[in-house]
């Protein structure tokens, strides 16, 4: 049950760090070079990775569902409508969250951990710079900008890839496939809500895991990176389920 306790204490830490970061948010403008560096590492750095994984996911899902449907009722005309809805409401946000956790979460945790170990955090405080303002706030702002864009790019990529497979392999014309009948406005709303919550959670959780290193020496950096990936992907799952349940609870009908 120790891990359950640590999950709860992580959740409390996230709220505390979020409050502290929001307070130092106006200091981001003082270090524009930090913000640009974070934008490039969180956003541009993840682009190709997400592009590739989203394309694979679109292809795989269309392949699998089309072969399943063909077995039951050989009518693929509504495949596109269902596919676009599931991609928008669930698959692409979850994929984006998990892949950003994998790529960015471990990087942030090991970066912060190595700064703690080499006492750069103390150096920052001595130089009268608030570490939250200098390290955490730019990461939060950059990820709030980058993660939704990454999600939109993945959505476009995944749907295009699925459409191409439907067209080439299963001979579904794109005009039939691109059917938004089952995708409602609130699906897109929950898409945005999920991405925004991931954008807040991933950097904060990874920073917290980085700070947890203590001063046990350089060897704890690898462990911090590991914890960063696990905890941020876990919180991605929790946030995703919460938004999905909220969506279903608020609108009830499918």
């Amino acid at each position: 049950m120790r891990w359950l306790g640590s999950l709860v204490s992580s959740a409390v830490d996230i709220l505390a760090l979020l409050a502290e970061t929001l307070r130092s948010l106006k200091g981001v403008g003082r270090h524009p070079e930090r913000l640009l560096a974070e934008l490039s590492s969180i956003g541009t750095g993840s682009l190709i990775f997400l592009f590739a994984t989203a394309a694979f996911m679109g292809v795989i899902i269309v392949f699998q569902t089309a072969t399943q449907i063909n077995k039951a009722i050989p009518d693929l005309s509504m495949l596109g409508a269902g596919f676009i809805r599931v991609m928008t409401a669930e698959m692409i946000p979850l994929l984006t969250g998990l892949m950003v956790s994998a790529r960015v979460g471990s990087a942030i945790s090991s970066e912060v951990a190595s700064m703690v170990v080499t006492e750069q955090m103390d150096a920052l405080r001595l130089a009268n710079t608030d570490p939250t303002e200098y390290i955490v706030a730019p990461k939060l702002v950059a990820s709030l900008v980058a993660v939704p864009i990454l999600g939109l790019v993945s959505l476009a990529t995944g749907i295009t890839a699925g459409m191409l497979v439907g067209w080439i392999v299963f001979e579904i014309h794109p005009s039939t496939f691109l059917n938004f009948r089952y995708t409602y406005g609130y699906h897109f709303l929950s898409f945005c809500l999920k991405l925004l919550s991931f954008a807040v959670l991933i950097p904060l959780v990874s920073v917290i895991e980085g700070f947890r290193t203590g001063r046990q020496g350089a060897f704890s950096v690898g462990q911090a990176a590991t914890r960063g990936v696990i905890m941020s992907s876990f919180f991605v799952f929790v946030a995703d389920l919460s938004v999905s349940l909220l969506e279903r609870g608020l609108w009830g009908a499918p």
């Binding site: 990087a107 970066e111 190595s114 060897f219 950096v221 690898g222």
Partner: peptide, 14 residues
Amino acid sequence: DPWEVGVAVNRSVV
């Protein structure tokens, strides 16, 4: 270099 361990973890996951 111990810092390479963080990079290794990142690359391994990706």
